[in-house]
C-alpha cells in the first residue's frame, strides 16, 4: 500500500475514533443510555401508572396484539418517568414521539427507559415492530397536561355527565384494539365489520341466528368464544372490561347501525 493510501486509512481511523468519542460523551456527559438487562422486575401482564412522589412516576406498560395497556397515560408536566415495558404475546416496539424512547418489547423479558416530559401535549406511542395483521392499528398516547393527578380521580362517566357512552365506546373501540380486526365502514377485516351489526340478525358458525340487540352484543364482547360468526376464525380474545365499558362499546355499535 502506498503513502496516499496509508494517509487515507489513518484519516478514516481518526474520524471513526472521533465519532466514537462523541458517542461516549453523549452517554457519559449527556446521560443518554442504551437499554440494558433488567433483572429486578419480572415480566408483568397488567399495565399501571404509579406515583412515586416528587414528580417521579413509574409506568408499567404492556404491549399486546394490538394495543398498549394502558392505552392512554396521563401525566403532569415535569414528570420524571421510569418506564418498564413487557410484551404479553409477540414482539412489539415502542417509539414515543418527541423523546429518545425507542424500545423493543420482547416476550419473556422486561425493557426499561427513563424519560422526562417537560412540554405539555399529546405524545403518540407507536408500535414499530411487526406484530401481526393489526400492527398498523397499535398506537397509544401519553397526554401531558397541567393539573393531571396520578391516579386520576375516580369519576366514572355517569349518564348525562362527562363523556357520552357512545363517545367513550368509540375511544375504547380504538384503544382496546377492537379496530385492529373490525372495520366500521362495512369493509371486511380479520373479524366481521361492525357496521350494521346492531339491530340485525347475524348467522353463527353453528347455523343459529343471533339478534343484534344490547344483551347479545354485550355477551359477545364478554364471551367471544361462545358464538362465532359464520365465516370467521374463533380468535377473538376476552378483554378485562368493566360493565360500564361493555355498555359504552354497545352504545357505540348502536351508532353504526
Amino acid at each position: 500500500m502506498d503513502r496516499a493510501e496509508n494517509t487515507a486509512l489513518v484519516i478514516a481511523g481518526v474520524l471513526m475514533a472521533a465519532f466514537f468519542a462523541a458517542l461516549v460523551y453523549s452517554a457519559a456527559g449527556l446521560n443518554i443510555s442504551l437499554p440494558t438487562c433488567v433483572t429486578d422486575i419480572a415480566p408483568f401482564r397488567e399495565g399501571k401508572v404509579i406515583a412515586k412522589g416528587d414528580h417521579h412516576y413509574e409506568v408499567h406498560m404492556v404491549a399486546k396484539m394490538w394495543a398498549f395497556d394502558p392505552a392512554v397515560v396521563r401525566l403532569p408536566p415535569g414528570a420524571d418517568v421510569d418506564l418498564y415495558l413487557s410484551a404479553l404475546d409477540v414482539t412489539h416496539g415502542v417509539y414515543i414521539e418527541h423523546t429518545n424512547v425507542n424500545l423493543m418489547a420482547v416476550p419473556g423479558a422486561v425493557n426499561a427507559a427513563r424519560v422526562r416530559f417537560d412540554e405539555e401535549g399529546e405524545y403518540d406511542v407507536v408500535c414499530h415492530e411487526y406484530c401481526g395483521v393489526g400492527h398498523q392499528n397499535m398506537m397509544g398516547k401519553i397526554i401531558v397536561a397541567a393539573g393531571t393527578t396520578v391516579p386520576p380521580p375516580a369519576a366514572p362517566p355517569a349518564a348525562g355527565g362527562g363523556m357520552a357512552a357512545a363517545e367513550l365506546g368509540k375511544t375504547l373501540f380504538q384503544t382496546k384494539g377492537c379496530a385492529a380486526c373490525h372495520t366500521t365502514d362495512g369493509s371486511p377485516g380479520v373479524g366481521p365489520t361492525m357496521k350494521g351489526l346492531y339491530g340485525h340478525e347475524t348467522q353463527m358458525e353453528d347455523g343459529a341466528m343471533v339478534a343484534g340487540d344490547d344483551s347479545h352484543l354485550a355477551e359477545e364482547i364478554r364471551e367471544p368464544g361462545r358464538h362465532v360468526v359464520k365465516g370467521f376464525p374463533p380468535i377473538m380474545p376476552a378483554l378485562p372490561l368493566t360493565d360500564a365499558e361493555v355498555n359504552a362499546l354497545v352504545a357505540y355499535l348502536k351508532t353504526l347501525s
Partner: peptide, 30 residues
C-alpha cells in the same frame, strides 16, 4: 441496541467493532 435482556456493555462493544468494520469500506472508497 433497543432490546431487553442484554447488558448495554456488550452493545457498546459491538458498536465499537461496527465502527472498525467501516474501515475496509473506507479503504475501498479510496
Amino acid at each position: 441496541f433497543a432490546d431487553p435482556g442484554i447488558s448495554s456493555g456488550y452493545k457498546w462493544l459491538h458498536g465499537a467493532l461496527t465502527f472498525l468494520v467501516a474501515l475496509p469500506s473506507f479503504i475501498t472508497a479510496f
